[in-house]
């Protein structure tokens, strides 16, 4: 077993447990960002070809757009709660 893959796997398990256990909504998003980094690295280390690298890039940019939309929605909902009271 390689030390590179073992290191990334250990970090990914720790980050996954911390996403599950954190209470706050806004503080979960940095952990999700770290999880996306780990998953892109594991995909390209599993498939050692240029097509694997293309898959990793497309996955990473799409998941970044998704977390951007979630953060924007949390800000809008705080603004709604502040103005309507």
């Amino acid at each position: 077993m390689d030390i590179v893959i073992l290191t990334i796997g250990t970090i990914m398990v720790i980050v996954g447990l911390r996403i599950f256990l954190t209470r706050s909504r806004a503080l979960k998003l940095p952990y999700v960002c770290c999880l996306n980094f780990c998953m892109a690295a594991l995909i390209v280390l599993y498939i050692k070809s240029p097509m694997g690298a293309l898959t990793a890039v497309v996955y990473f940019i799409s998941s970044t757009i998704s977390s951007n939309a979630i953060a924007h929605t949390i800000g809008e909902m705080k603004k709604i709660e502040k103005t309507m009271k």
Binding site: V4, P30, C33, A41
Partner: peptide, 17 residues
């Protein structure tokens, strides 16, 4: 180069996680 992939994951873990 594969050590740089794992190194970047460790570097982002020390900041975000």
């Amino acid at each position: 180069p594969q050590y740089f992939i794992a190194g970047m994951v460790i570097a982002i873990f020390t900041i975000q996680g």
